[in-house]
């Protein structure tokens, strides 16, 4: 068991695993997302208040969930990297950061678009949107710090510390923003409690959420693999792989 984990944590072992797994992840992600999109847009009933515009939920909610999950995952990876010095963890964190920022932006954008029919304006200082905006800035901070420190040894550790500081602050920021703007819709979807939505509305949402998570997994596997190749370019096994002599 430990030997297996150890092998996985080595860049070479992970590379092999990633090559095997990522096509499945991509396939699953695409299937789920296509099914969820068709189901959500074509077959789910329209909302009795918001009409068809509510269907943007099928993008907005998965993106928002992913935006937060990715930040938390990055923080876990950062902790693993700082405590156990497993370089692979940092490579994964590097690989998923841009996706996290993109998902945050997607959540913001879809929220803004949703705002037009619901509130009659592109931007409302709604608690959830404001938190999402601040999360986007947290992502920018991590990306900027990594960029500014460049290839230096300290970049990875500094970014990990910043992510950890950020993840401790996220709940505080969100609670204070919610307090600041208490007029917000209750959470639409939670795994633990029974959702108030009818099942033919939330089932496609569940499919979309799963699809987005598979996408996350697929993107992380693939991008981590690229990161491994970039950082380990001078190692023998990478040279052998790329056919660049030995």
């Amino acid at each position: 068991m430990w030997a297996y984990l150890h092998k996985l944590a080595s860049p070479q072992g992970f590379y092999a695993l990633s090559v095997r797994l990522s096509p499945w992840c991509w396939g699953l992600a695409l299937t789920l997302m296509v099914v969820g999109t068709i189901w959500g847009l074509g077959f789910a009933p329209a909302d009795y208040q918001q009409g068809n515009s509510f269907r943007i939920i099928y993008v907005h909610v998965p993106a928002a969930l992913l935006a937060q999950s990715i930040y938390v995952t990055m923080a876990v990876a950062g902790l693993v990297f700082l405590v156990w010095r497993i370089k692979l963890a940092d490579m994964a964190a590097t690989a998923m950061a841009p996706l996290g920022a993109a998902m945050t932006f997607l959540a913001l954008f879809s929220g803004a678009v949703w705002g037009v029919p619901t509130w009659g304006t592109w931007w409302q200082w709604d608690a959830r949107l404001t938190s999402m905006l601040l999360l986007l800035f947290l992502y920018f901070g991590v990306l900027a710090l990594r960029g500014a420190l460049g290839g230096r040894q300290s970049a990875a550790r500094a970014a990990s510390v910043l992510t950890l500081v950020g993840v401790i602050n996220i709940p505080i920021i969100q609670y204070s923003v919610e307090w600041w703007y208490t007029l917000h819709q209750p959470a639409t979807f939670s795994v633990t409690s029974r959702p108030a939505m009818p099942s033919d509305m939330w089932l496609p949402l569940l499919v979309m959420v799963l699809g987005f998570y598979c996408l996350f997994l697929a993107v992380t596997l693939t991008r981590t693999r690229h990161e491994i190749l970039r950082r380990e370019a001078s190692r023998r096994w990478v040279r052998a792989l790329t056919g660049e002599g030995s």
Partner: peptide, 26 residues
């Protein structure tokens, strides 16, 4: 965190300001 950054004065606000929001709010 930004000691090693040549022009850290620019990046520091980006790292720190989002974390200042709760203090600002209360």
């Amino acid at each position: 965190l930004t000691i090693g950054v040549a022009r850290g004065g620019i990046i520091l606000p980006l790292l720190v300001l989002p974390l200042y929001v709760p203090v600002l709010i209360f």
